[in-house]
């Protein structure tokens, strides 16, 4: 698997898109810091960008890479290699290079600005950790969609729809249900609904870490009492891990049964 990972990673490192992605974050980091002059504020703005953009880029990149490397995959399938290592190697290659672009692109400007002397370092690290998780989750979901759809256009469509659903529509439905059922106690419902969407989960995690949950009112208090405790943090990180592991497991499982 490591060899496939190496080749996929090198292949991507030579591709223009990894650099575009890296330069985008680099530019975003510098602009935010030198216009804002405030690390904590920059972290909040970055969060809003990362929460939406990382899943989108990972989804599109994952689907594109999978379809584009069809030939490479077929070449590898005839070699003495395990199927799951071919697909997992490619997956980690894509997810790894995207994560590297994110961490380096944002890390460099923040370190230059003096991150290590600031107390925003933990907030910033959490931001990068959730960014890495979102990359792993959405690349895995994208690979799953591409593996199950022979037709490129369909696969691409489903992948974008999935992103749209989790990033935008889910929140709408969530709010709508809160309004409709406002007469009922909704604490546990909203907690559960949040943990079932990796984007919402990451957003809530970061907001609570940044301690601006006061803005969220009563629900915020409930969330804080939940996520603020060790158990809450443990459960929410566990959910992120689960969101990562399940699609990766399905990828390995499905790839063993597919015809090429």
């Amino acid at each position: 698997m490591l060899k496939i990972l190496k080749y996929s990673f090198y292949d991507l490192m030579r591709s223009r898109w990894s650099y575009v992605y890296f330069l985008f974050y680099l530019a975003l980091g510098f602009v935010l810091l030198f216009l804002n002059h405030d690390l904590s504020k920059a972290v909040i703005t970055l969060m809003n960008v990362i929460i939406v953009l990382v899943p989108l880029i990972s989804t599109i990149f994952g689907v594109m890479y999978f379809y584009n490397s069809k030939e490479f995959t077929e070449l590898l399938l005839a070699q003495p290699l395990k199927r799951s290592s071919i697909f997992l190697g490619q997956y980690y290659g894509v997810a790894g290079s995207l994560t590297l672009s994110l961490i380096l692109g944002l890390g460099i400007p923040f370190i230059l600005y003096g991150l290590f002397q600031s107390d925003a370092i933990w907030d910033f690290s959490l931001l990068l950790v959730t960014g890495a998780f979102l990359t792993l989750i959405f690349t895995a979901l994208a690979f799953n969609i591409a593996l199950s759809n022979e037709n490129k256009i369909k696969g691409f469509g489903y992948a974008v729809l999935m992103w749209l659903f989790l990033a935008v529509i889910y929140d709408g439905l969530f709010l709508l249900s809160l309004i409709i059922f406002e007469e009922y106690p909704l604490d546990s419902f909203s907690l559960a609904a949040t943990t079932f969407n990796p984007i919402d989960l990451s957003r809530t995690l970061i907001l609570l870490k940044l301690d601006i949950s006061a803005l969220l009112g009563y629900t915020g208090a409930v969330f804080k009492s939940y996520f603020g405790t060790n158990l809450g943090l443990f459960i929410s990180l566990g959910m992120l891990v689960l969101w990562t592991v399940l699609p990766i497991w399905r990828l390995a499982y499905k790839s063993k049964r597919k015809d090429f």
């Binding site: 292949d11 030939e71 077929e74 070449l75 005839a78």
Partner: peptide, 11 residues
């Protein structure tokens, strides 16, 4: 194995 259509990674 020599595959039917020689499709290789183009880059």
């Amino acid at each position: 194995y020599l595959p039917q259509i020689a499709n290789f990674p183009g880059n």
